[in-house]
Design a protein around this nucleic acid. Structure first.
Length: 886
RNA sequence: GGGCGUGUAGCUCAGUCGGUUAGAGCGCACGGUUCACAUCCGUGAGGUCACAGGUUCGAGUCCUGUCACGCCCACCA
């Protein structure tokens, strides 16, 4: 059995997270409790971490992941469930390659200066450094990951899974190679997938260009056709002009040929229904190699394909006089030339969406190129079905629709990247027979002709291909490992909603394809972190916050509690210093409450208590604690973590600290030994319950306090999650009444500016409740500072020279002799009577309506009747008061 | 061009089977050296729940529409 530790020998009056958090983490990690024990008689709870990219250090968005994932893991672990949180990092192909290339650029070098091998080594070094930093940062956040199962997407084990997946899909015909238009980033010099393109509304221009028509012999005629384009440089790749088949204006032109300006290529005029007659002139230039629409049109009409640019978006030899120019320089010169030749009709301003590379913001060039694709429809359908039939559930629900919408319109996934960092595509080309060998293990010979002259495809796979396998590749797939059998499918996938398509959808598709099961049951999506102005965090805006800075200032507990209680699922969140301060203060409050409890209780755990010795005060706080346990557990089951955290906060601060600790002081002062024992027991018991409930939210401070508890047994991290005991409504009602009376008196004291130190006389008239208030006399006397305090059932004669107020069903008189203005009292009473009568009228109206009495649930009607009775009682007292005032 | 979200106190946000008098933190005002805590304690002010209709005995909550802000998706040359 593990023993807890005191992380400080004494408890200073201010909680100092910086002295404690790291020590606590070391104890947890040393204890080995983050590694779950496989127990086939119990169903495990599994989360695989969304692996942070090894591009650099963690940013504050990662704190969200940790806050929610660790919350779930710690909670389930406390419930006695084998809980695995599997950590790891992602090689993040294009992103990591880019940051390393930027490093190189600082030395004035490019990756080609180094060569592939040396460059890859440089990225591995980078990964060593930042991968390590990231894992340390996760520890600082308190992540209770099973470090013995740490993975990296390019580990040999996971790389083998990638090859296995590729080969299986290839053999099934779901991976194919082909020449299609892809999104080409000239800066990265690679194809990227549709998802990696950001569309930005851009103020561009629409150029109207005249193409001269050719006569039948191919010579100049005097006729023209005018086309409109936003990218004039692509004219150099035109192989046709298309019009709509029903467009009367152009019917006669179909079948004729036009002469391409600048390079005088003859191109046919064809009809195609994809052309919108209302756009531009209704005639469109067709550039099959540089536009996806044009590619389709070209395919239908059998047009030739002319690629006019290279992979850096410079014009190639097809561009004739413009060869070697950058695409925009070419555009500038070509437009000038067209104008000179009288072929430029006009230029209109035109706003349209321009694609940019998500990683480097370079304008994307649609380009014909030979790439590898995943045929996605056969994978998407079962993936949709898994969500439709409830095998996978989204929290919050609304993301289901977004998921379906994307799945239904999905297009084949371009998975090859012309990069050096990543999983090399497991395809080898034979120099002799030209055939491909696709294999899991590196082949030495062509599988077709046996030649040893084979060369591996130079490209790597989209980083999301390996990420898509993460929930099972990390557990040993394709082997039938014990981990895979026990921990898979995982329980919850927790991540930001911004990567539903990139990652979540692909895990579902690939998970079902390869394991026959959905990779997780629940997708919990947290919102995104915004800065104080509500803007997205990004490096370019310079508003990225390092979580370590916040941890240093406020503590990891405060950061996590702020995140979890700061919003609701799927909702973006701003983080402010004032909220972080509030959470830090809460940790301190808890620390001090614990100091008080421990100081009071001493070093020995009180023996079990005879329930008969519990006073109503104890019964009250224990009942409230049980209710809190029940509510929190229910909310956690329902993924309402924020609400759960707020409830703990309210109970711990607003009830335990504000009221019970104060009441306990009084009980201890006045009580017998048996009472003291009951109070000690209750103090400790409720404190422990709070610590247990709060541990998944604020793991460090709760564990640190736990370490000071007398005769503690083990660490809090593996303590049991509390089970709600019975509630005690009479006790809750009784103390509720006491609280109400105390508050009412405090209120009046403050209004009359009674010095805090001085006592006031008070008379409480409480009817048949008087005995119960009487038994709480010390509490009222001390907490409301009353002396003498008179508690009676009724009064023969009501005092007039006193301030009068109602506290629930009790009346309170404060005889502020000489300070009472009778006229004002009369008026105040009259106003109160009037207000109470209005309330009564409203309730009576409701109760007299047939609709309400018949249709509302019985308990609601009952509640209204009770309310009416109470109001009637109040108004009677007010009238009596008015009469006494004369 | 589609779709989604948000609009509740000065600020940041809760409010998930529709049910008394709509909550919290911060900020603000007033008062506090009560032996756990000034990272604190007590008290208070502050909201026609964006707007307009509708459903209902009853609407911040459900429906329709409008306005404002934000986001996502989309091959309009």
């Amino acid at each position: 059995m593990l023993t807890g530790e005191k992380f400080q020998t004494t408890m200073p009056s201010a909680y100092d997270h910086s002295q404690i958090e790291q020590k606590v983490y070391e104890v947890w990690e040393r204890s080995g409790i983050f590694t779950p024990k496989i127990d086939w008689s119990r169903k495990p709870f599994t989360i695989v971490i969304p692996p942070p990219n090894v591009t650099g250090e963690l940013h504050n968005g990662h704190s969200f992941q940790v806050a929610f994932e660790d919350l779930m893991i710690r909670w389930r672990r406390m419930q006695g469930i084998p809980a695995l949180w599997l950590p790891g990092t992602d090689h993040a192909g294009i992103a990591t390659q880019n940051v390393v290339e930027r490093e190189l650029a600082k030395q004035g070098k490019t990756r080609s200066d180094l060569g592939r091998e040396a460059f890859e080594q440089m990225v591995w070094d980078w990964r060593e450094k930042y991968g390590g930093i990231i894992l340390q940062q996760l520890r600082r956040l308190g992540a209770s990951c099973d470090w013995s199962r740490e993975r990296f997407t390019m580990d040999s084990m996971l790389s083998r899974a990638v090859r296995e997946a590729f080969v299986r899909l290839y053999n099934k015909g779901l991976i194919y190679q082909g020449n299609y238009i892809v999104n080409w980033c000239p800066r990265c010099s690679s194809a990227i997938s549709d998802l990696e393109v950001d569309h930005e509304e851009t103020e561009g221009k629409l150029y109207y260009v005249r193409y001269r028509l050719a006569d039948e012999a191919g010579r100049h005629s005097d006729q023209f056709v005018t086309v409109a384009t936003t990218r004039p440089e692509t004219i150099l790749g035109d192989t046709g002009v298309a019009v709509h088949p029903d467009d009367e204006r152009y019917k006669a032109l179909v079948g004729r040929r036009a002469i391409l300006p600048a390079i005088r290529r003859l191109i046919p005029i064809i009809a195609d229904p994809a052309v919108d007659p209302k756009f531009g002139t209704g005639a469109v230039k067709v550039t099959p190699a540089h536009d996806p629409n044009d590619f389709d049109i070209g395919q239908r009409a059998g047009l030739p394909i002319v690629v006019a640019m290279d992979e850096a978006a410079r014009m190639n030899q097809e561009a004739g006089p413009y060869a070697g120019l950058d695409r925009y320089e070419c555009r500038r010169r070509l437009v000038a030339d067209l104008e000179r030749d009288g072929l430029l009709v006009k230029i209109e301003p035109h706003t349209h969406a321009v694609g940019h590379c998500q990683r480097c913001n370079t304008v994307i060039e649609p380009l014909l190129s030979k790439q590898w694709f995943v045929k996605i429809k056969p994978l998407a359908e079962p993936a949709s079905e898994a969500v439709r039939n409830g095998s996978i559930h989204f929290v919050p629900e609304r993301f289901t629709k977004i998921y379906f919408n994307w799945m239904e319109n999905i297009r084949d996934w371009c998975i090859s990247r012309q990069l050096w960092w990543g999983h090399r595509i497991p395809v080898w080309y034979c120099d002799d027979c030209g055939e491909m060998t696709v294999a899991i293990a590196d082949p030495t010979n062509c599988s077709h002709c046996g030649s040893a002259n084979i060369q591996q495809d130079p490209d790597v796979l989209d980083t999301w291909f390996s990420s898509g396998l993460w929930p099972f590749s990390t557990l040993g797939w394709p082997d039938d490992s014990e981990d895979l059998r026990y921990f898979y499918p995982t329980s919850v996938m927790e991540t930001g909603y911004d990567i539903i398509f990139f990652w979540v959808a692909r895990m579902i598709m690939l998970g079902i394809e390869f394991t026959g099961q959905p990779p997780f049951r629940v997708v919990y999506l947290h919102g995104l972190l915004r800065d104080a102005k509500g803007e997205k965090m990004s490096k370019s805006k310079g508003n990225v916050v390092n979580p370590l800075d916040l941890i240093a200032k406020y503590g990891a507990d405060a950061l996590r509690f702020t995140i979890v209680t700061g919003g609701s699922p799927g909702q973006d969140q701003k983080m402010s210093d004032s909220r972080l301060e509030g959470s830090r203060n809460f940790a301190n409050k808890l620390w001090n409450a614990a100091r008080f409890v421990l100081m009071t209780v001493g070093d020995d755990r009180p023996a079990a208590v005879d329930p008969a010795d519990l006073g109503v005060t104890e019964r009250w706080i224990l009942s409230r604690a049980n209710r809190t346990v029940e509510d929190v557990t229910r909310l956690m089951e329902d993924y309402q973590f924020g609400e759960a955290g707020r409830i703990i906060y309210d109970f711990a601060w607003g009830e335990f600290c504000d009221w019970y600790l104060e009441l306990a002081k009084i009980r201890l002062q006045d009580g017998s030994d048996r009472t003291r024992q009951a109070v000690h027991h209750t103090l400790l018991s409720v404190l422990e319950t709070i610590l247990r409930l709060l541990h998944p939210f604020m793991p460090f401070v709760t564990e640190a306090i736990w370490g000071h508890l007398p005769n503690r047994n083990g660490l809090l991290v593996v303590a049991n999650w509390p089970v709600a005991g019975p509630t005690d409504s009479p006790a809750e009602e009784e103390i509720g009444q006491v609280v109400e009376v105390v508050r009412a008196i405090r209120n009046v004291r403050a209004e009359f500016r009674v010095p805090a130190g001085s006592a006031v006389a008070a008379i409480v008239v409480a009817g048949d409740r008087a005995p119960r208030l009487e038994s709480n006399r010390p509490a009222i006397e001390r907490l409301a500072r009353t002396s003498p305090l008179t508690i009676v059932g009724g009064l023969a004669q009501r005092p007039t020279e006193a301030f009068h107020l109602l506290a629930g069903v009790a009346e309170v008189y404060l005889p502020f002799t000489g300070m009472i203005d009778l006229a004002k009292e009369r008026e105040r009473t009259a106003v109160e009577i009037e207000q109470t009568r209005q309330k009564i009228a409203r309730v009576e109206e409701r109760l007299s309506s047939d609709g309400f009495v018949n249709k509302a649930p019985a308990e609601v009607v009952e509640r209204e009747r009770g309310r009416l009775a109470e109001l009637n009682e109040q108004v009677a007292k007010l009238i009596a008061r008015a009469e006494a005032l004369g």
